[in-house]
Design a binder for these strands. Structure first.
Length: 342
DNA sequence: AACTATATCAACCGCATGCTA
DNA sequence: TTAGCATGCGGTTGATATAGT
């Protein structure tokens, strides 16, 4: 493999960064901003190419980087966005504050891909691997493609906004200062944070086939939520989907689980029993079903805190339902979605 | 303890894209 | 319109850590 043009000059170091190099880079950017990456190494006294410096800064030294394990919310966001966008890591990263595209990509390749595979979900297509037919009805497929296109376009527009606002912020060298406290007095007021694009919350709606269960194991059947008077979740899965749990993240990113929403379209409710043939499954959505949450609708639900109660634990759904004493009013759930434009 | 296999993730590479003269 | 340059992106590599035998 040929060397990168930027490393063709003799004497340019490659490989892992030493603490001394990190310190030099950090100090330079703190004082001057990065400016031209190509010019930076010589100015900062580094024997590295600009590309390497940029990468080191972007993926490791930047002060606004969150490290460590990914939260359940982050994982779910990644799965949803990957289902919509594929391997567009930078776009996905734009929706995960403080995470880098490289980190997300690594996490996907090392953790999430395997986990999805283990669960029988193809990590590329996000569809069950074992399903025999794998066919989608043309009409539904067209609808889903259409929705996915819109959603993708919207996500990319949002990502662009985030990038642009970052760019504006970074044109001020003080943006990079690690210790904000020491510079707060001298630095001009930072530009206001970018207005959060409307309807981002919509993306955080997910559906799980494990109602009431620990959501860390809940692999969603990915739906695309659209606004059509009420909220409507259209499943993009060509397979039959068990009665879903709908989750709404509130402003604090906590999870609300709802079972039993109103369903239109082909729908069969019944005991959970199925053999290897998906056609025998009952209590299902199929991909031409839709689920609507109306302003005036009340939703019976499991107590979200009761993770032992599972609609599918036995075959007596009605008896199980009697155990549920929580009643959720949709308007309160809808609050987070009000005044949003689509 | 020594060796091997596997997992992890920082860093590299080549190509794509956007900008400017 | 085009060429050259800077930067960004996604795929891949390879060093290191950890687990298993």
């Amino acid at each position: 493999m040929g060397r990168s043009p930027c490393c063709e000059k003799a004497g340019l170091k490659k490989g892992p960064w030493s603490p001394e190099e990190d310190e030099k880079l950090l100090e330079y950017i703190q004082q001057h901003g990065h400016g031209s990456w190509r010019a930076l190494p010589s100015k900062a006294g580094l024997q590295r190419c600009g590309k390497s410096c940029r990468l080191r800064w972007k993926n490791y030294l930047r002060p606004d980087i969150k490290r460590g394990n990914f939260s359940i919310q982050e994982e779910q966001t990644i799965i949803q966005l990957h289902a919509l966008l594929g391997n567009r890591w930078s776009t996905i990263a734009a929706h995960l504050p403080k995470r880098t595209d490289n980190e997300i990509k690594n996490y996907w390749n090392t953790h999430m891909k395997k986990r999805l595979s283990k669960m029988g979900i193809d990590p590329t297509t996000h569809k069950p691997q074992t399903h025999a037919s794998g066919c989608v009805r043309p009409k539904d497929f067209a609808n889903l493609c259409h929705m996915a296109q819109w959603e993708t376009a919207r996500l990319e527009a949002e990502a662009r906004l985030v990038r642009e606002s970052k760019l504006m912020s970074m044109s001020n060298p003080n943006y990079h200062l690690l210790n904000k406290a020491t510079t707060a007095a001298a630095a001009p007021a930072p530009p206001p944070p970018p207005r959060r694009p409307p309807c981002l919350d919509i993306l955080k709606v997910w559906a799980s086939t494990n109602p009431g269960k620990d959501m860390s194991n809940a692999m969603p059947n990915y739906g695309i939520l659209t606004y059509n008077g009420g909220l409507q979740l259209n499943f993009s899965d060509d397979n039959l989907v068990p009665i879903p749990t709908v989750g709404l993240f509130n402003e604090n990113s906590s999870i609300t689980n709802i079972n039993r929403v109103e369903v239109s379209g082909p729908w069969t409710a019944g005991p959970s029993n199925h053999d290897d043939d998906d056609d025998e499954m009952t209590g299902i959505f199929d991909n031409s079903s839709s689920m609507e949450i109306h302003d005036d609708m009340q939703i019976m639900t499991n107590n979200p805190l009761d993770s032992t109660d599972n609609y599918y634990d036995d075959d007596d759904a009605d008896a199980d339902a009697d155990d549920h004493d929580a009643l959720w009013n949709v308007p309160s759930l809808m609050q987070g979605f009000s005044n949003r434009t689509f």
